[in-house]
C-alpha cells in the first residue's frame, strides 16, 4: 500500500463499519491482509504435506514393485467415491462464498451446511475404509506379519528377497495411514471452523461488504481438496 497522495485515515469514520478491526484503515486493507495471510499459511501447508511426500517419493522410486502390490490391495472404488464427495463439498463451499459476496444470508447458511455434511460424509467413508483395511489385515506391524500370506499367497516367505518385499509393502502402508491421517486431521479442523462460521452467518454477522472469514475458510477447504486430488493417484493407483 503506497498511495501517491497521503490519505488521512482519520477522515474515515470506522466505528460504523461492521467487522472492521480497529487497527486497519479500511475494508480493502483488511481483506488484503486476510487473503495474503491465508496464502502464506497455505504455502506452509504445502511444505507440511511436501515433507511426507518427499519421503514417499524416495521410497517409491526404490521399491516400486512393493508399492504397486500394496496399493492394489487398497479399495480404489472407495477412494474414487470419496474424491467425488470431496469435490462436491468444495463446490458447495464455492457456492457459499459466492452467496456471501451477494450478501445472501440464507444461501450462505444452506451451502455451508451442505459443505459440512459432505465433509462429514467423507470422514465416515474414510472410517469405514480404515475398518475394511483392518479386516483385511492391511495394518503394518504384527498384524501384517502374522497374516501376509492371505494377501500375497504366491510369495515364499523363506526367501530373503521376499522378506524385503513384504517389509517394503508395510512401508507403503505407513505412508498410506500417515498421509490420509494428517489429511483427515485437516478435514476435522476445517469442519470445526465452518461450524462456527455457520452459526455466525446464521446470526447475520456477515454482509456483502464483510465476509472475509467465509472466503478464507473457502481457501483452506479447497486446499484440503487439492491435497486429496493428489493422494488419490499416489496411494490408490500405484503402477510399476
Amino acid at each position: 500500500m503506497t498511495p501517491s497522495q497521503p490519505i488521512d485515515p482519520h477522515a474515515l469514520d470506522r466505528h460504523h463499519v461492521q467487522g472492521l478491526a480497529h487497527h486497519f484503515d479500511d475494508m480493502d486493507q483488511q481483506h488484503e491482509a486476510a487473503t495474503l495471510g491465508m496464502w502464506a499459511f497455505l504455502a506452509t501447508e504445502v511444505l507440511f504435506f511436501g515433507g511426507a511426500l518427499a519421503g514417499y517419493a524416495v521410497y517409491r522410486s526404490r521399491y516400486g514393485d512393493a508399492f504397486a502390490a500394496a496399493s492394489h490391495h487398497l479399495y480404489l472404488w472407495i477412494g474414487v467415491i470419496n474424491t467425488a464427495v470431496l469435490l462436491t463439498s468444495s463446490f458447495m463451499m464455492a457456492l457459499a462464498v459466492n452467496a456471501a459476496k451477494h450478501g445472501n444470508r440464507k444461501k450462505v447458511v444452506t451451502f455451508l451446511i451442505l459443505t459440512i455434511l459432505l465433509g462429514l460424509a467423507f470422514l465416515c467413508i474414510k472410517g469405514i475404509e480404515y475398518y475394511l483395511d483392518y479386516r483385511e489385515h492391511l495394518v503394518p506391524g504384527s498384524i501384517f506379519e502374522a497374516n501376509w500370506h492371505e494377501m500375497f499367497p504366491h510369495i515364499d516367505g523363506a526367501h530373503p528377497g521376499s522378506m524385503m518385499f513384504l517389509r517394503q509393502v508395510q512401508l507403503f502402508l505407513m505412508f498410506y495411514y500417515i498421509l490420509t491421517g494428517i489429511h483427515a486431521v485437516h478435514m476435522i479442523v476445517g469442519i470445526s471452523v465452518m461450524i462456527v462460521l455457520t452459526v455466525k452467518a446464521a446470526r447475520g454477522r456477515y454482509t456483502a461488504e464483510y465476509n472475509s472469514p467465509i472466503d478464507m475458510a473457502g481457501l483452506y477447504w479447497h486446499f484440503v481438496d487439492v491435497v486429496w486430488i493428489f493422494l488419490l493417484p499416489l496411494l490408490y493407483m500405484v503402477q510399476h
Partner: peptide
Amino acid sequence: SAMFRTSFALGIAVIKALLVVLFFM
C-alpha cells in the same frame, strides 16, 4: 503400460488441482 498409467493419473491430478486453485480459490 504402467509408466503411462502413472503419468496419466498424475497429469490429470495436476489439471484438477489447477482448476481448483485457479477458479475455486
